[in-house]
Every structure is written in C-alpha cells, then in structure tokens.
Amino acid sequence: MTNLFSSFDPSSMFNLSLNWMSTMLGLMLIPPPFWLIPNRYLMAWNTLTATLHSEFKTLIGKNISGMTLIFISLFSMIVFNNFLGLFPYIFTSTSHLTMTLSLALPLWVSFMIFGWINNTTHMLAHLVPQGTPALLMPFMVCIETISNIIRPGTLAVRLAANMIAGHLLLTLLGNAGSDLSILMLIILLIAQILLLILESAVAIIQSYVFAVLSTLYSSEVT
C-alpha cells in the first residue's frame, strides 16, 4: 500500500522540482495557431469555445459581460492539464488538491463576497427554499449554509478524485503486465487502450462539469 500512490509523489530532476511545470505546458499549445492560416485545430477550438460561450451565457442569464470568458479559460486550463496527465512521466497537476482548491476556492469566495454585498436579500432568500414550513426553516437554513460552504471542497475533490482514480487503475494494470503470458498481455493491452479512451472522455467531462458548476454557482448570486 505504501507504493500504491507513488506515481503521485513529487519527483525531481537536476535538483529541480519539475512536477508543476506541466501545469504551464498547455499554454504553449495555444498561441502558435493564432499566427497561422486557420486550420482544422483552430476551427475546432473556435467552435468549442463558441459553443461553451452560448451555453454559459444561457446558464448565467444576466450580467454576462465578460463572465463567460472566465469560465471558458477555466475549462481550457483544466482540460489541457487533464490531457497532459495522460502522457507518461508528466505530473497531473489537477489530481492534486492544491491545484483544484486553488481554482475552486477563490471563485467561490469572490461569488460569496459579491452576492452578500450587492444582493444581500437575494442571498438570504436562498437559505430558505420556497414553500418550506415555518417549523423547518431553522433546519433548512443550517442545511443550506453547510451545503453552500462545502461547495468549493466538493468541486476540488470531485476533479482530483476522478483524475487519481483513472490514473491509479492504469498504473496498477500496467504494473501487472510483466508477470503475464502473451495472451493475457494482449488482453491487458486492449484493456489499457479502452481505459485510456475512457480517461480521455473523463478529462473532458470533468473539465466541463467543473466549469458548469462554477457557472451555476455564479448565477445564484446575481
């Protein structure tokens, strides 16, 4: 069990900790296409960002001036880091709570500060769902307050846990390959490829879920 999570331990090279450098590798993939003739990669990325913009605009509703750009950037950063983590020997920064909490907590705190300062009545009304009996109101306020406070934690843990789970399964299956026969090794390789496809889908889905939930939380304070 001590070596089970060893793939997530910090490692160094030339006495330098290079783990978190992978976080910025995705930024290197963005600028070059903008200086070239529009290609399929750029057209696909523009289509994706336009689709996300229209969806986030619908979710936020009003006061959308520039807010969709924040969530599209958030989605882009997470999806780049998720995909980079699928490459061998590249540290998955989004599997670490330090990274995911650094994304979720400032967003949630800023939403709360904005909401309580500018829409205090609206924020108080959110603590008691419509149609709640008077006897249950104190309990509902406690429940809604707790559910509101744990939101950044659930966002961070959901992303980190999903990244760790898939990578850990791939690592465990890969470590078992040296002791298998040829037939079992072929089956293992097919399973690894299918898991890699699944992890690629999870990388996109978890980025989308993180961005959409952040959008929904922001729409509640406006």
Rank of each mutant, 00 (worst) to 15 (best):
L136M: 10
L155W: 00
F210E: 00
N3H: 09
L69D: 14
F56D: 00
A134T: 14
F83T: 06
P138I: 04
A211K: 00
T98A: 14
H126T: 06
L159H: 01
V79A: 04
F8D: 00
F34S: 07
T2I: 11
I37T: 10
V128D: 11
G174D: 02
I193F: 09
L180A: 08
T68R: 00
A50T: 09
A125H: 11
Q206F: 02
P38W: 02
M13Q: 07
V212D: 00
S178Q: 12
L195T: 04
P129C: 12
H167K: 11
G66M: 04
L36C: 12
N39Q: 13
A50N: 12
Y208T: 02
S6H: 14
L18H: 03
T49V: 11
L216D: 00
I90P: 01
N162H: 11
I30T: 03
L101V: 09
N3W: 14
I204Y: 03
F5K: 13
L196W: 15
H122K: 11
M99C: 07
P106H: 07
L29S: 08
V109G: 01
P138H: 06
Y89D: 13
S11K: 06
N175E: 09
M137L: 04
A165C: 07
T58Y: 12
Y41L: 13
I64P: 01
N175G: 11
L69M: 06
T132E: 04
A203L: 04
L189P: 02
V109T: 05
V109N: 01
M24E: 09
F34R: 08
S102E: 06
V209W: 01
W116Q: 12
V212K: 01
H96C: 10
S218K: 02
A104G: 03
P88A: 05
R151I: 04
I187P: 04
T58H: 06
N82R: 14
S76K: 03
T2C: 12
Q130N: 13
I113L: 11
G85Q: 03
V109W: 01
A161V: 13
L194G: 02
I193M: 12
L86M: 05
L27S: 15
R40V: 04
I64T: 12
T68A: 03
T171A: 15
H53N: 06
P106V: 07
S6N: 14
R151M: 05
F111Q: 01
T132K: 08
T2N: 11
I205M: 08
T100F: 13
P33W: 08
F83H: 06
P10F: 15
Y217P: 00
L48S: 05
K62V: 07
A201S: 09
L213N: 01
T154Y: 04
E55V: 13
Y217G: 01
I149M: 06
L4V: 15
S22H: 10
K62M: 14
A201T: 07
A161H: 03
L127F: 06
